[in-house]
Amino acid sequence: MQQEVRNRKRKDLIFALAGLFSLVFAICTLLVLVLDLWTTGFGRIDYNFLTSFPSRFPAKAGILSAWVGSLCVMLVTAFVAIPIGIAAGVYLEEYAPKNWLTTIIELNITNLAGIPSITFGLMALGLFVYKLQLGQSILTAGLTLALLILPIIIVTTRESIRAIPGTIREAAYAMGASKWQMIQHHLLPYSAGGIITGVIISLSRAIGETAPLITIGALTFIAFLPTSPILHEAPFISFQWLKDSFTVLPIQMFNWVSRPQAEFHVNAAATGLILLLLTLVMNGIAIAIRYRFRKKIKW
């Protein structure tokens, strides 16, 4: 009897140790990576680095066009992917008839979330650049990344909506609410935490994407900013920036890494650090939002 219990507890211990080892391994790898970037790149980050264009001289080069480009592309991506993704998720969960066609669509959306991102780049090159003649522009890049993260947003929207208990829907309907009222007053507000979390995490994935943007022809050396969206004379706003060529942080980084001079590698590390920091901040915001909503609503 005692022997048997001891045996089982030993297995417990073995599994716990194996788990601990895996965890330490994963965290150490990450730490080494971050530390390496930090020691190499941190000293390079200063005001000038953030406000200068890339240059032939490593000491003068900066990431101004890259972070502005990243920001513009993310704006387009968010603007396109968020409304479409949420609407598609709500439709699939609440309106779509439950039949084989819906099942096929659902399966394929889940599959799309796992497709290599370069495939999206190829598709965008054919569709946006050649067919629709949108050029190798911020608009094309934003649309490409929007397509890339659309499945993630759809899936998280559906999951967040599904987590709302059926009794809440019935309560709303029993009060005489129409379907849209039920969705607008209940499903969307109660699932907002989950949806926003999903959106931010998908955007933080998009901000680090390189392959599809290189495929559509993003430039690696850009020494100008996109056209200002604000004009000094009527009509005061301009969308010309959508058609401008661009670069983004990971592409700038890639460009510097492929240079032979060691000074450029330092620049790359500094860019990587900034990218990492951005992702970290975005994920932090996502966690904070999720925590706040969880505290407010419990089923």
Binding site: T167, E170, I297, K298
Partner: peptide
């Protein structure tokens, strides 16, 4: 016609 359910289901 109003209804009250088995399990209390107030909206959050």
């Amino acid at each position: 016609i109003g209804m009250v359910f088995q399990k209390p289901n107030p909206f959050p």
